[in-house]
Amino acid sequence: MSANPASKSQPVSALPPLSGKPMRQVGSTGPLVLLPNRCTGCRTCELACAFAHSEDGNLGLSRIRIHPAGPDRYVQVTCLQCVNAACVQVCPTQALVRNADTGAICHDENRCVGCGLCETACPFGHMHFAVEMRKPVKCDLCGGRPACAMFCPHEALEWR
């Protein structure tokens, strides 16, 4: 049996439990809750994230992505801040560390050597490598004030 929870054949229950609590919402990342049924696909969140993490709003650096899921249906995908995170497990330099205040697993630029293992390991395809910077891009919950949730005009992302 495949151990990769992202393979399509896997039941949803194989997703890692979050903080030991039952999932309140699909894709809840703890206090950041994704509500795909409200998402209109406007991609304001992507832009907000991009500007929160770069001067010129480079969309390649956005930590959240909107995926179409059929007619007028969209899902947001971002980091789930997993409990036993694969990215943390593989990082050879302890460059991925959970922030005690926000619960976000944060990427430490001062430690990362850009080996790329985290990107490969993340079962949800969240971590990705910014080719130009040669460093991974990862949701850090904006230090506790997630820009995506602040700017979502449809309240499809909630910060609770």
Binding site: S2, Q89, T120, G125
Partner: peptide, 24 residues
């Protein structure tokens, strides 16, 4: 690193699409 072999089978974009489909 102790992660099983099939963690390394699928690329990041395909994993993300799969995740979105499962959410949906």
């Amino acid at each position: 690193k102790g992660l099983p072999e099939d963690y390394y089978d699928v690329c990041q974009s395909c994993k993300q699409i799969a995740t979105s489909q499962r959410f949906a």
